[in-house]
């Protein structure tokens, strides 16, 4: 899987039109010089060989050098990724907690007032672009109410501690979580409805268990089996949404870095960033599969 990602990135990057040597030497370069540079850069070798050289370098931690920032790609990506991780991680936890809670309430109170309100909120949540939601939140909570700072990760003067970080984190994390929470809530609701119809729920009720135990101990536990894979997908969703949210809130994360790098045509940086984030996502999904296997004893046998 990890290899597959590198293959795809490599293939996409080799789609780039133009000749790097010409780009570096300029339009007036002599053919001999172009050829020499191509040889120096290893560009005259077959594609498969170039791929393995690139892969080998990455395995040694060498992702190349960013020309626009003039520093190694790996340093920049690692620094930016930690900021993204704080944002996306918080959002992920928020969307999982609120999404599942809303889904459970909605299913248990099917057709009730709570269900209608949640369904309505979910519909708005999955229809509103997260970047627009972020902008509205800035207008309302930062400009009008002055509860939270408009943007950034830390205050420019005198900030830098955890409280400051949290203060800056609230709005982007919530804006980012809103859409994903909607999707999770929708799915949790239907998963719960499906499970609550099962015979073993009737058995649990026939045993005389308290309703709270029936819902959370029996129904939700089964529903989690189908909710968890979706949480894995939502992690990718939150990472994706972070690109927009980081731009809206000026969050110094990897998403904003990628957009800037694309606009500056700093392709080494794009390449390294994409591989790095995609690898993190794959690892996360492996963790999700493990969690799934722990939850469902039938998977092992």
């Amino acid at each position: 899987m990890l290899l597959g990602i590198t293959v795809i990135v490599f293939l996409i990057m080799s789609l780039i039109p133009g000749d790097p040597a010409t780009a570096i030497l300029g339009a007036y370069a002599t053919p001999e010089n172009v050829e020499k540079l191509n040889r120096d850069l290893g560009l005259d070798r077959p594609m498969v060989e170039r791929y393995f050289i690139w892969l080998g370098n990455m395995l040694q931690g060498d992702f190349g050098r960013s020309f626009s920032l003039n520093r190694p790609v790996i340093d920049e990506v690692a620094e930016r990724f930690s900021a993204t991780l704080v944002l996306a991680g918080t959002s992920f936890v928020l969307c999982a907690l609120f999404g599942i809670a809303a889904g459970v309430v909605s299913a248990v109170r099917q057709y009730g007032l709570a269900d209608r309100l949640i369904t309505f909120a979910v519909l708005i949540g999955i229809s509103v672009p997260s970047f627009f939601l972020g902008m509205i939140m800035i207008l309302f909570f930062a400009v009008r109410l002055r509860w939270f700072p408009v943007s950034g990760m830390y205050a420019i003067y005198g900030g830098g501690d955890l409280a400051d970080l949290l203060h800056h984190l609230v709005m982007p994390a919530v804006a980012l979580a809103a859409v994903a929470a909607g999707v999770v809530a929708r799915l949790s609701r239907s998963a719960m409805l499906e499970v609550l119809r099962q015979d073993y729920i009737r058995t649990a009720r026939a045993k005389g268990l308290r309703e709270r135990r029936v819902i959370f101990g029996h129904a939700l536990r089964s529903a989690m089996v189908s909710i968890i894979p979706v949480l894995g997908l939502q992690a990718g969703f939150v990472l994706s949404g972070a690109v927009y949210i980081e731009t809206v809130f000026q969050w110094p994360g990897v998403g904003r870095m990628l957009v800037d790098a694309i606009l500056k045509r700093d392709l080494m940086l794009v390449q390294g960033g994409v591989v790095f984030v995609a690898a993190a996502y794959v690892l996360f999904n492996i963790a999700v599969d493990v969690a799934q296997a722990l939850l469902d004893p039938r998977i092992k046998t």
Partner: peptide, 13 residues
């Protein structure tokens, strides 16, 4: 296996 926007970004890049 990719977060989808990332893939789109790579293509646009």
């Amino acid at each position: 296996g990719f977060p989808y926007v990332l893939l789109a970004l790579a293509i646009v890049a």
